[in-house]
Design a protein around this nucleic acid. Structure first.
Length: 958
RNA sequence: GGGCGAUUAACUCAGUGGCUAGAGUGUCUCGUUUACACCGAGAGAGUCGGGGGUUCGAAUCCCUCAUCGCCCACCA
């Protein structure tokens, strides 16, 4: 065995990943060979242009943990990977690249050639992000890798489109849409961002018709749109304008006479109280325009320049037009004033350019009929969000959903499968129609296909069904793996993606029972990854931490484990690079713990054991297994990871390994054999339980361990059954006794540290405990305690050793000891509360300037010098009294049976006189009574911890 | 404007009415013993954001205020 003392992830990660991949472990068993219990997860397909960021890394880790856990539990587990063609993003990337390399725009290249360039690019770079997921250790079934523009998925998109067409859920409409002038496409409402910008509110004077020299003043943030105005609206009750309602004014430049109308919608308080109406370029005006039957005049070209309607300004860009319009108005004396304001500007989230609302012909999907079953699914509980509160977000969107504009004026994407005849009569078809083919409904020749493509989400909403083979409903994957169980994604795509997938499930899987059409039973919304200052990590802000750098530096396991340890369900996480050190150290700890085990495997191994520490660690293992399994079942990853961290580091390494060392070299062969058996047992289960979190290191150690102990591993760890704590159970006695030993050892160590006695075997300690049972246990394990505390001798005493004077502090004792006194004494009560210490500290202030403040907790206190008795019961004591009474009243346990929790008798100090200390504290009636609180069941803790009070003194032997 | 979340040790966070509020990092002291110095032992560090209330008991439940963050809607 040649394990180095340091775990170096880079040496093993690549080969281990290959080992898994080649073994076929990532694929579910062939049909008929598995357990018949499917478990399916669909990866949220990242953009092909994407690069792995921390959000991906977290999401990949979450999914991989679930998948690996379920696989080990024996489910037929499938995790489908893939990428999204991401229309605008990808087209923009390649367009830029082509222009940089060839100085050609896409228009110059032509549609066919440009699309070919994108495909070339995709072949070359499109798998990058999936490879990065592999670096993270994700155990996806790569044989099923999908791409939203694959032939199969493209076919699904067409079938879905035509299906909706036939159901009359698709229509073409002239609507005010959001136009991105840079990318020259319509974008959906969900692709708009609002940016707070400083701007101006221009007050313009429109001359009133027939009243020379009189004006109506309108306020606007976009003065250039005045060229398209077809009306002015005022509030009907506004006294300033009441008499103008019904009259008209003249629009400068274009010299149009437009009416002044009354509309309740107008806020008389804002601006001038009069609002210009530009129905073709503003959503609110669009509605007002319709109400008052005003004309819609489009003044913009597709690229954002002013068109012929703009009269003298035709051909200018919108920015230029704004300047000139304002300047000219000013010249003409028609500019009343300019207010500086801060307002929200709607900006395209892709190009960051201001969105222009425009009237345009687009394709829409009627959403309400599709949304209804998706709402129902959540309300029925078929779909559950975690954390649950995201369900409200989902519902809110669905209940207020607007029709979905699905056409995009792009080239990269699924071309809309609609063809027209010469009369512009459209028809949708799954199969390609050619120019000249007969139009199926009109019988006339087809003259053209719709040039637009579909919104990216029109393919990704089919992801769970299309990747499994839909529309081929006989597909075995579809039958076997749909619906899926778990979807993990980011909160910002709940509407864009999650809700639409649910709609698609209901719309297209109509032969399944209602509940099973729902595409995933749990939608897990993972944390948002923020930087150390609490800002969202983003490429543009430049505050991102590259997960690949972190993997290179600390290893994939460390990155995964750290992320999970930091990420409590539903809570955003602040990240800085050094956070990954915790995971890295943990991996190293596991590595070395395993190393220790393997270094001690020479000799017989026996299972089970009468030895206390063996019984203890096995009992702890059983408890941990139960807790971790339950946490993973319910997707509480952070809890599971913390518990493993604690168990491995504190229980196994800090105590068990230390306890077992002397036995391994000792003369008692049988005891050593039990130790070896237990070490192997616990280590194997630890590796199994940790595998979903830290797959690489556990897999490698699993292989090594089996080599060392000379047993062939039954399988790779990735497929080995989930540890089930078979044959071991909780051993309350072992845990309680072990607790006493730990307390005793800690007491001695504390005295040693505080008094700074460096000596070891030459020392004798006296540990005193008032309770006889406690002494009996300590007596039994005297050797063990002495061993762990590096003592020559240990005496167990009933008498409370007290410092010479109760006011004496450790510091004082120490000083004396330096001169002559042979004895260091320190009263030590186990589990001395930090809060209590602080209270004491406050009580004994002021400390003298040169005394060692940090030791001053040692002043006598009610807590440990009970003989004096507290003056009155402490708050804690009172509350424990109350609990004891209720426990007794509940009939669960009598106080004396309640494991020593009866505080009234705990010290024999007479502290029970005031119990119950407050006359309001009465036992509650055990039964009945409206509004009565459900009694808490006693916890394990209350049963397990006997009251311990230990003190320790240390004496030099010589 | 509407909704959601956060506020606990110097930092990052656990802690859903009950035992003395915990962990990791950082700090201080001591330490090389069958794995691990990415280690071990020990210590110091908290008015649980403020204020009210409910309760025998509140970090936890309710009200309120403050600060920070996210999402949605958006007034020209």
């Amino acid at each position: 065995m040649d394990l180095s003392t340091r775990y170096t992830p880079s040496e093993i990660e690549e080969s281990t990943y290959a080992l898994w991949k080649d073994s076929g472990a990532f694929q579910p068993p062939a049909p008929g060979e598995g357990s018949g219990r499917p478990f399916t997860v669909m990866i949220p397909p990242p953009n092909v242009t994407g690069v792995l960021h921390m959000g991906h890394a977290l999401n990949g880790t979450v999914q991989d943990i679930v998948v690996r856990h379920r696989r080990k539990l024996g489910f037929d587990t499938l995790w489908v990977p893939g990428t999204d063609h991401a229309g605008i993003a990808t087209q923009a990337v390649v367009e830029k690249k082509v222009y940089a390399e060839e100085q050609k725009t896409r228009q110059e290249l032509g549609r066919e050639a440009f699309l070919q360039r994108i495909w070339d690019w995709k072949e070359e770079h499109g798998n990058m992000i999936l490879q990065q997921f592999q670096r993270l250790g994700c155990s996806c079934d790569w044989t099923r890798t999908a791409f939203t523009m694959d032939e199969r998925l493209s076919h699904a998109v067409r079938v879905a489109f035509v299906d909706l067409w036939k159901r009359d859920l698709i229509y073409r409409g002239s609507r005010l849409i959001n136009w991105d002038c840079v990318l020259q496409t319509a974008i959906s409402d969900d692709e708009i961002e609002y940016e707070k910008r400083k701007g101006s509110l221009w007050h313009l004077r429109y001359p009133l018709t027939g009243r020379p020299g009189e004006f109506i003043v309108v306020a606007t943030t976009r003065p250039e749109t005045m060229l398209g105005d077809t009306g002015v609206a005022v509030h009907p009750e506004d006294a300033r304008y009441k008499d103008l309602i019904g009259s008209t004014c003249r629009l400068p430049f274009v010299d149009r006479e437009i009416p002044i109308v009354a509309d309740d919608d107008v806020d008389a308080e804002y601006g001038s109280g009069a609002v210009k109406i530009t129905p073709a370029h503003d959503p609110a005006d669009y509605e007002r325009g319709k109400r008052h039957r005003l004309a819609q005049i489009n003044i913009l070209e597709k690229d954002g320049r002013i068109n012929a309607e703009g009269g003298p300004f035709a051909g200018l860009t919108r920015e230029e037009a704004r300047k000139q319009v304002v300047a000219k108005l000013d010249e003409m004396g028609l500019l009343e004033k300019i207010d500086k304001i801060e307002h929200n500007v709607s900006v395209s989230d892709r190009s960051k350019s201001p969105v222009e609302p425009m009237i345009s012909e687009q394709w829409f999907v009627k959403m309400q009929p599709l949304a209804a079953p998706a709402i129902h699914a959540l309300k029925q509980g078929w779909l559950q969000f975690r954390p649950e509160r995201w369900g409200k977000v989902y519902l809110h969107w669905l209940e207020n959903v607007l029709d979905w504009c699905i056409s995009r004026q792009l080239w990269w994407g699924h071309r809309i499968p609609v063809w027209y005849d010469a009369d512009e009569v459209p028809v949708a078809s799954v199969e390609d129609l050619k120019i000249g083919d007969t139009h199926p409904t009109t019988g006339k020749p087809i003259v053209r296909q719709d040039p637009d493509v579909l919104d990216t989400w029109a393919s990704s909403w089919l992801w769970p069904i299309a990747t499994l083979g839909w529309p081929d409903k006989s597909s075995s994957d579809l039958q076997r793996f749909y619906p899926t169980q778990f979807l993990s994604t980011a909160s910002e795509i709940i509407y864009l993606w999650v809700a639409r997938m649910v709609m698609a499930g209901y719309a297209f899987m109509d032969e399944l029972p209602e509940e099973q059409r729902n595409p995933f039973s749990t939608c897990y919304i993972h944390a948002t990854v923020l930087d150390a200052k609490g800002k969202r990590m983003s490429k543009s802000a430049g505050n991102g931490i590259d997960p690949l750098d972190m993997i290179a530096q600390y290893g994939a396991d460390a990155v995964r484990f750290s992320l999970i340890l930091l990420t409590k369900e539903g809570q955003d996480v602040r990240l800085s690079p050094d956070r990954f050190e915790q995971g890295s150290r943990f991996c190293n700890k596991i590595w070395n713990a395993a190393r220790f085990v393997m270094m001690n495997m020479a000799g017989e191994r026996k299972a089970g054991s009468p030895v206390l520490e063996d019984r203890w660690i096995l009992s702890r293992l059983a408890g941990t297994t139960k807790l971790v399994s339950a946490a993973l079942d319910e997707y509480r990853f952070n809890e599971a990871a913390s518990e493993m961290y604690r168990f491995v580091w504190n229980d196994f390494c800090d105590w068990y390994v230390e306890l077992v060392k002397s036995r391994l070299t000792g003369a008692d062969a049988e005891s050593a054999a039990y130790a070896r058996g237990t070490l192997v047992r616990v280590l194997r289960d630890i590796l199994g339980l940790l595998h979903p979190f830290t797959p690489y290191v556990t897999e490698v150690l699993w292989q090594q361990l089996h080599e060392v102990i000379g047993e062939a591993a039954s399988d790779l760890l990735i497929r080995a059954p989930w540890p089930d704590a078979a044959g071991i159970g909780a051993d309350a006695q072992a845990e309680a006794e072990m607790g006493l030993i730990q307390d005793a050892v800690t007491s001695v160590r504390r005295v040693r540290a505080l008094t700074m006695i460096g000596e070891r075997k030459s020392l004798q300690a006296v540990v005193s405990a008032p309770a006889e049972e406690v002494r009996a246990v300590l007596e039994r394990y005297r050797g063990t305690i002495a061993n762990l505390a590096y003592l020559g001798e240990l005496e167990i005493s009933a008498a409370a050793e007290r410092p010479a004077g109760s006011a004496v502090s450790v510091a004082a004792v120490l000083r004396r000891s330096c001169c002559s006194a042979p004895t260091w004494t320190s009263p030590v009560s186990s589990k001395c509360s930090k809060a209590a210490k602080r209270r004491r500290k406050r009580a004994c202030r002021p400390c003298s300037a040169n005394s060692r403040t940090r030791l001053s907790w040692n002043a006598p206190t009610p807590r440990w010098s009970r003989a004096n008795g507290p003056a009155r019961p402490s708050c804690a004591r009172r509350s424990r009294c109350w609990r004891a009474i209720r426990t007794w009243v509940d009939g669960r346990r009598r106080p004396e049976e309640a494991g020593g929790i009866d505080p009234c008798h705990e010290s024999g100090s007479g502290a029970d006189l005031n119990c119950p200390p407050n006359e309001n504290m009465r036992p509650v009636e055990p039964v009945g009574g409206a509004g009565q609180r459900e009694p808490r069941p006693p916890t394990d803790k209350t049963q397990a911890t006997p009251e311990v009070s230990l003190r320790c003194s240390v004496t030099r032997l010589s």
